[in-house]
């Protein structure tokens, strides 16, 4: 830095920050950016189908899919509810189970060592093939779908929560030990809060995975409801609009799920540096 030799009154103006674009302008640009991205992608799609005269059986235009959705809102709403509920139950079950298992794993080397092979096994198996098994066990109701969704979410939840519970700050841990804090106290005051960023990051991944699980469960047949079923029927009977309509609604559910979770995360993890990114966690979607 060079020495400031300007007289006091002049210094006042000289020290002003360099001119910047107004804050609100930059902000609205940031809000528009994701929409602009979508518009570009769908625009290219629409343009491609029209210009190259692609058969609607191969690929309908996004616009025609939206028009179709507008004509059948009740149909999609009914099936979306089914899939949503299955996915949500699967998600919740996996979350609950992984919280319990990860807590035991984090507190006992024995449980950790005993669990690891099972986890590796589950992780390495394409769990989608379990869907027919669940179908045989639980029939044609909602349970097989819920379970497939749960199996999809279980591993990421457990591994992340376990990692989070184990990655305690050694100084803070020693500090609590220096006053003989109990395990329970250390869990609630240190381990669990410190694991939340890990849990949320798994939570976001699992929004998509739970939907995939529920849809796969529905697609394996026997089901008369849900967006997985409507998509499959659409494919078999060449109802291309219905196939693409199901895909769009599923995508929409995924996006809304992720946005909701991001909103919760922004509040709960306000203390964490991951939330200091411009626009908060929603920006990293």
């Amino acid at each position: 830095m060079t020495a400031d030799t300007a007289p006091p009154d002049a210094a006042g103006t000289a020290r002003q920050p360099p001119p910047q674009r107004p804050q609100h302008l930059r902000r609205s640009a940031m809000t528009v950016a994701p929409i602009a991205g979508l518009v570009v992608v769908f625009g290219i799609w629409e343009f491609y189908v029209r210009v190259f005269n692609i058969s609607p059986l191969t690929l309908p235009t996004p616009w025609s899919i939206l028009v179709h959705l507008r004509h059948e809102p009740g149909f999609y709403w009914r099936h979306a509810q089914v899939t949503l509920l299955e996915a949500a139950w699967g998600y919740g079950l996996a979350l609950g189970a992984s919280l319990i298992v990860a807590t035991f794993m984090a507190h006992s080397r024995f449980v950790e060592r005993a669990s690891m092979p099972v986890i590796v096994l589950l992780q390495s198996t394409p769990v989608a093939v379990l869907a027919p098994v669940f179908l045989i066990w639980f029939g044609f109701g909602h349970w097989p779908k819920v379970l497939v969704a749960a199996v999809f979410c279980y591993i990421p939840f457990t591994i992340n929560e376990f990692t989070g519970l184990r990655s305690v700050d050694p100084g803070a841990y020693e500090l609590l030990r220096s006053v003989s804090a109990s395990r329970t106290e250390i869990f609630w005051k240190l381990r669990f809060p410190q694991s939340l960023p890990y849990l949320f990051s798994a939570g976001r991944l699992c929004v998509g995975l739970a939907l995939v699980g529920a849809v796969i469960g529905e697609m394996f047949g026997g089901s008369t409801e849900g967006l997985g079923n409507t998509a499959r029927v659409g494919q078999v009977r060449l109802l291309i609009d219905q196939l693409w309509g199901s895909i769009f609604v599923l995508a929409l559910i995924g996006v809304i799920g992720n946005l909701l979770l991001a909103a919760v995360e922004t509040r709960v993890l306000r203390w964490h540096s991951s939330q200091d990114l411009p626009g908060g966690s929603a920006a990293t979607l």
Binding site: P170, G171, V179, E185, K189, W271, S273
Partner: peptide, 30 residues
């Protein structure tokens, strides 16, 4: 019996607690 106060090498503050609540942490346990 909590007769020893410990200051580790790093501040080791709990990120989710405010300054005030970090200071009272040790009083809350045991």
């Amino acid at each position: 019996t909590k007769q020893i106060g410990f200051a580790p090498q790093t501040p080791s503050l709990l990120g989710w607690r405010t300054v005030r609540r970090n200071v009272t942490l040790l009083a809350e346990v045991n």
